[in-house]
Design a binder for these strands. Structure first.
Length: 566
RNA sequence: GCGCUUGUGGCUCAAUUGGAUAGAGCAUCAGACUUCGGAUCUGAGGGUUAGAGGUUCGAAUCCUCUCAGGCGUACCA
């Protein structure tokens, strides 16, 4: 239910009836319960333009508001705010209508766009570490969200499979005589370290490594085969992580750095032709207005850089993938880089003017002390280890709670542990750095996944207890039911906002508010008690059912599973 | 040096993009149980939104300066 746009229409009609023109009518949530459910704050701006008393205008508008359906009451308040209350009967009808809807009332967008979401992008030379966590889960949430809303989403996993370090790695791979699928590659981190040791200790090996870099680039079959088997193995590791993390990236979504190799010289040609780049100190550079240093697109030795690859990728995404919007879910530290390549790509016509280019930036993951997240000895934390620890800790947190079978406990711990890690990350506004804290994320209290999962499990418990099938209408009667029903209907507006701004935390805040309201409702309004009449019982059961459905759908967009009991 | 970015109760975070008395959660204190799952709910205290100016009906949000942190900054990605 698009509540805000419905309200906008009603207010627009009222404005028209009062002979006032307004270009955009923005309805916001009321800041306090006394101020109703929604408010329209635009009168003050209009008053300035019209040079009239805002309260007078507001009063005129309020008189014209249609009170026959959605709205039960409107009031003028303060300097000219218009406060809006929604009608209980309307809420009853609307919630009843979606209680059995798989989309819980969320419509598909009318005109789907093609949206490229570039996320995860691990480097094949190394094991995935915590640095990849945020991109993977924020990007995946964004992709899932857009898909749910009906957009045509194209996931792109821009893996790093090209560069000098691969010469060393395949030389070592050859020396170890493995096909890439054996034990030696199981711990990529170790493999890299071992290779580096060899590189440093043996001149002969180092030369071979350098030679192999050149050979791969020239298309040498032997070296390419080695390289391919290495990439396969490394990608396999990533896929294990994706599976654990519940991230929907497959091989189909992989479009590696190397994919763009044959397009790089064309990029330079285009830039030269259009006089966008110039040669400076032997390198091919683009000097952008306002930048002190140039964006280098080709090194003095002829080699290309990541700006070049990104330009090729941008071109490909526009020309071949026909994207309308391209989202890069990448660390905030690369802001300048994206600003540069976005500007260049548009100047050079590699990306059409109307295509929306966005850097979906996020902050760094910190430890409790506010320092970048590292292992005790200062190394990078492997993502698999972190996820495994999450499951262990989740098991610890719930094992005394109830008698569960081993299997139940295991699947529950997975949903809870992984959910906790993801939710903690997704629930803060993505651009700020975030502090990683096990105890906090695995708490039943506060804005955590466990609290949502707990609420869901409680709802299922009530529904199980009722035993019969629940059919019938929701009848919104009191204040708390009013708030709950309204929250349930706000789901679509919340998702829309989150999709436009690419802010998953909008969804988590919403879920937390929803669950809080539900808990209050549940406390105040008994559902199954004997003295509750059947009509009320059914209405409340349906509210509980719908709440459960929304929690489930909301969490699933975040890539988090619910559990039937905890 | 230049550029980008951040600064909100003791701690972790919000604030619908310029709206009403800045909201939550932890933690602290005080309440509610013969519990539809109390790992819950109710309430209290705690703020000059880093500081100083400015813009206007109205500022955490926009502008200027200061202070403090983070990040980036010519051939890594």
């Amino acid at each position: 239910m698009k509540i805000k746009s419905e309200l906008s229409k009603i207010i627009e009609n009222a404005l028209n009836s009062a002979d006032i023109k307004a270009d955009e009518i923005v309805i916001s949530d009321a800041t306090k319960p006394e101020f109703g459910d929604y408010q329209f704050n635009g009168i003050m701006k209009l008053a300035k333009i019209l040079k009239q008393n805002p309260r007078q205008i507001a009063t005129n508008v309020v008189e014209q508001v249609d009170l026959t359906g959605m709205i039960s009451k409107v009031e003028v308040a303060g300097p000219g705010f218009i406060n809006i209350w929604l009608d209980n009967r309307w809420l009853s009808v609307q919630t009843t209508a979606i209680v059995n809807d798989v989309r819980v009332g969320v419509e598909q967008v009318e005109k789907p766009k093609r949206v490229v979401v570039d996320y995860s992008g691990p480097n094949m030379a190394k094991q995935m570490h915590v640095g990849h966590l945020r991109s993977s889960i924020i990007g995946d949430t964004l992709a899932t969200l857009l898909e749910f809303l009906g957009e045509n989403v194209i996931r792109q996993n821009h893996i790093g499979d090209w560069g000098t370090q691969f010469g060393m790695l395949i030389a070592y791979l050859e020396e170890q005589n493995t096909d890439g699928n054996t034990q030696e590659l199981k711990d990529l981190e170790q493999f890299y370290k071992d290779a580096k040791v060899r590189f440093d200790e043996s001149e002969e090996f180092a030369n071979k490594a350098r030679e192999y870099v050149v050979k791969i680039q020239k298309g040498d079959t032997h070296c390419l085969t080695l390289w391919q088997s290495f990439i396969n193995a490394s990608l396999g590791h990533c896929e294990e992580v994706y599976k654990k993390l519940n991230v929907n990236l497959t091989r189909e979504d992989v479009r590696a750095e190397s994919f763009y190799n044959n397009q790089l010289s064309k990029v330079i040609e285009t830039l030269k032709e259009k006089d966008i780049s110039t040669t400076s100190n032997g390198a091919e550079c683009v000097f952008l207005e306002g930048d002190e240093t140039p964006t280098i697109v080709q090194k003095g030795d002829g080699g290309f850089l990541y700006a070049t690859t990104d330009l090729a990728a941008l071109n490909f995404r526009d020309k071949e993938l026909k994207a309308d919007r391209i989202c890069y879910v990448v660390d905030a530290r690369q802001a300048q880089h994206f600003k540069q390549v976005f500007t260049i790509s548009k100047q050079a016509g590699m990306v059409a003017e109307e295509v929306v280019l966005e850097h979906i930036a996020f902050g760094t993951m910190m430890d409790k002390g506010g320092k970048p997240f590292k292992t005790r000895d200062g190394g990078t934390v492997k993502l698999v280890d972190l996820l495994d620890e999450a499951v262990v800790r989740a098991t610890e947190a719930i094992k005394d709670r109830n008698i569960h079978s081993k299997e139940e406990l295991a699947s529950m711990a997975k949903a809870i542990g992984i959910g906790a890690v993801k939710y903690a990350d997704l629930s803060i506004s993505r651009e700020s750095n975030y502090i990683f804290n096990w105890d906090k994320m695995l708490s039943f209290e506060g804005n955590t996944s466990l609290y949502m999962q707990y609420a869901y499990a409680r709802i299922q418990s009530i529904l199980r207890k009722y035993k019969a099938e629940v059919t019938g209408d929701i009848l919104v009667e009191d204040e708390v039911e009013h708030r709950l029903a309204l929250m349930l209907l706000k789901f679509e507006d919340t998702l829309t906002k989150a999709s436009i701004e690419a802010t998953p935390h909008t969804i988590t805040s919403y879920l937390y508010d929803l669950v809080s309201v539900f808990m209050k409702f549940y406390e105040l309004n008994p559902i199954l008690r004997d003295d509750i009449d059947e009509v009320t019982k059914i209405s409340r059961l349906q509210l509980a059912t719908l709440t459960g459905n929304v929690i489930e759908k909301g969490l699933s967009i975040l890539g988090i599973d619910v559990v039937e009991k905890i």
